[in-house]
Every structure is written in C-alpha cells, then in structure tokens.
Amino acid sequence: MSAEKLKAEKRTEFGKGAARRLRAAGQIPAVVYGHGNDPIHLALPGHATMMALRHGGANALLDLDIDGDHQLTLAKEVQVDPIRRVIEHVDLIVVVRGEKVVVEVPVLVVGEPGPDALVVTDSATVQVEAEATHLPEQIEVSVEGLAAGTQIHASDLELPQGVTLAGDGDVLIVNVTAQVTAEALEAELAESPAGQAEAEAQATDEAAGEAAAE
C-alpha cells in the first residue's frame, strides 16, 4: 500500500467553534499521536483527504507534510456526519517504515456456493498484523462450489505474504447454510404459535360461513 501525500497545517485554535470554521473553509480537523510523542493538532485539506481515505480504505496510509517535515501516519478513526456524510474529524497514529501494526481488514467474499446453499457472513473484518507500509486493503475468501454446512474460520483464511493472523483463529467468518425452500418455510410458519392461531381463526371463519349458508 503506497502512502497518500497530504499537506497539513498545525492548528492553534481548538473547540467546536474552531472545528466548524475549519470545515467551513474546506479543511478537516485531525490529531496525530503515538510513539510517545505529544499529540499534534492539524488541519487537513478537505477534498484531498477525503479522496486519500477513499482510495486507501479503512487503513489508509498518509504521508503528511507538516511545515516541511514528513510524518508517516495510519488512519485510526474517521468521524463522519451521519446525515451529510462529510468527514468531521480524523485520528491518525504515527508509524515508521518496517514497523508492524495490528489492524482490522475487511473480508471480501467471492464466488458462488454449491446448489441450494446460502452464504452468511458472520464477521465482515479480520484482525491481522503486517508492516504498516504493506497492509492489505482486504482479505478475499472464496465460497466457490462450497456445500451447505461448510464453515470458514479466521484460521482458514489465505493471507498474503508477510501478513499474519492477530485475532482469534476460531472466529467464524463465513457460514454456508442450506437455503430454505418455500415449502419448508410454510411448514415452519404453520407450526409456529402465530401460524396455528391463524389456522384456527381461518377454520372458525370457514365454519361460521358454512353455518350462515345453511
């Protein structure tokens, strides 16, 4: 993963009002921390930062130019406005080339399962350890031709070279189950309390209709 280069400015004003003014000016407030250093409060260019985070994914690597000094950072948390869908704040951690970090990486399910099988994704991410400059954007898991009853755990994933599993290997990632047929669904609904009550009500209505006809 290559680092996206961004020009950053140090912030001297803090608080909600200052953050609003920054966003109104097309910038994004951010904080860089880690490696025992004091947090650095920054203003990042809005559009360029948004594009860098979109291109780099959940673990975007950013090369920040801070007053002429370059600092390699990793996106740790991105706060997005739930309504306007704009970035409100970014937390970044300091990394160095060659350093290994533990991150959550998205899981991408590819392929089609066997006949009458349904794929259920139990975990959308997996925790891995890798060099900060060689983080995978996603981990692919193939379900091509898999039969119902097949389960894929974290320990079953094929990880890229240099990437190791950091979380629990027993975590269920994908569960391939049997598709429920229309007949089986109707039978299950009929056996449920609600289904039985509906059947009883229908029988009562039919009996009442027959009695009225007589």
Rank of each mutant, 00 (worst) to 15 (best):
H41Y: 08
T73V: 07
G26M: 07
P82M: 08
H55M: 11
L64V: 11
V32P: 05
Q71P: 04
A48M: 14
A19L: 00
H55V: 07
T12K: 10
K76M: 11
G57P: 00
D63C: 05
D65C: 03
V32C: 03
L6G: 06
L42C: 09
G46Q: 09
G34M: 06
D67H: 09
L53A: 04
V32T: 09
D65T: 02
A8G: 05
P45H: 06
E77C: 01
L44W: 03
A30W: 00
A58N: 07
V78Y: 07
Q71W: 07
I66P: 11
G36H: 02
I83S: 15
A18E: 02
L62P: 03
A48T: 01
A8K: 01
D38M: 13
V32E: 07
K7L: 14
E77L: 10
F14S: 04
L61D: 10
G68W: 03
P39F: 01
L6C: 13
D67V: 04
Q27I: 02
A48S: 12
F14M: 01
L64I: 04
L53P: 00
A8H: 07
M50L: 10
T12W: 10
L44N: 12
E13C: 03
D63V: 03
A60M: 03
H47C: 05
F14T: 00
G17N: 12
L22I: 09
E13I: 12
L64T: 08
A43P: 06
G56R: 07
A75G: 06
V78P: 00
L53F: 05
H35Y: 05
P39V: 02
H70L: 10
A75P: 11
H55Q: 14
N37V: 02
N59K: 06
N59S: 05
A48H: 09
P45Q: 07
L44T: 01
G26T: 07
